[in-house]
Design a binder for these strands. Structure first.
Lengths: 146, 146
DNA sequence: ATATTATAGACTCATCGAATCTACAATAAA
DNA sequence: TTTATTGTAGATTCGATGAGTCTATAATAT
């Protein structure tokens, strides 16, 4: 079981968009270059984020992608679910007259565990990531000066 | 992203083995029938549990599979990791001179979230599942009597 | 009008989950 | 010691899906 590469691209792109001046858009080409992925494929990933309502796109000159909400209002869960979908990770396939995935206690436990992960992803915003990056850069500059 | 069916078979088989009288083994055939899966395939799944040290197997007449530890000492995490492996769910593939998956804050956050799920899986034992089943049966019998 | 940009859809390719089949090894019972 | 029974290993198959390409099309600023 693994997260798809698309989730990786989506998260990094969202973080990058969060670094842009508010309202400013950027095309898929530079985003693709940074992440060493083809523009057409990254575009496909970003289109799913558009449909999920996390970013907006505009065609034509001066077009590209930009965030809708502030980075403090975008959680990891938003991005992950937009790309990975909403189906439970685990599915009890044992099905008979006294047991199905509705009443399976194993299923219940696996769902609870998944929920813990989701809760954490929901508590973490893109803003927090950007803040950590800021902090690292600032620390680095300080160490250079000292 | 989804858990494999093998994980589903593994968890249900372990739970079933936990219902047997202590020390008693059972062959793969009945286990496979219950779960509506081929014996050879289930056998392959169970062999990974043997290698993980969760169950033991014996060939020949009166052979089969049985638990090593008590059900209160077998956690969901034990079973899940035996089947799914230990690799992190998320992998930051952005790699340049200032960024790799070692120092990626997105990677860190995704790891934390995964850890929350693992913590829950570690806190839940097979014994707890069996107890819930007991409780359900007992409740059912009571409702029949009343 | 034209260059630029995103979108859609068909398509390809590799990987991997899921399962089968067969041969083999180990063990208990006859 | 033979024989039936059971698990193990390896090769192989099949299908689904992740990952990515390619091309045509639509929208927009200049």
């Amino acid at each position: 079981m693994k997260y798809s590469k698309a989730t990786n691209y989506a998260l990094h792109t969202i973080a990058y968009l969060g670094l842009l001046p508010s309202g400013k858009a950027i095309g898929v080409k530079p985003l693709a270059e940074i992440q060493k992925v083809s523009p057409t494929y990254l575009s496909k990933v970003l289109t799913t984020l558009v449909k999920a309502g996390l970013i907006v796109s505009a065609p034509g000159v001066k077009g590209g992608y930009r965030l809708i909400k502030g980075v403090e209002d975008i959680t990891f869960l938003d991005v992950v679910q937009a790309v990975e979908g909403l189906n439970p990770l685990f599915h009890c396939s044992l099905d008979n007259h006294v047991h199905d995935n509705e009443n399976c206690f194993i299923q219940q436990t696996m769902n609870e565990a998944e929920k813990k992960m989701e809760d954490h992803l929901h508590s973490q915003t893109i803003a927090q990531v950007l803040k950590k990056i800021d902090q690292r850069v600032s620390d680095y500059l300080k160490s250079e000066a000292g």
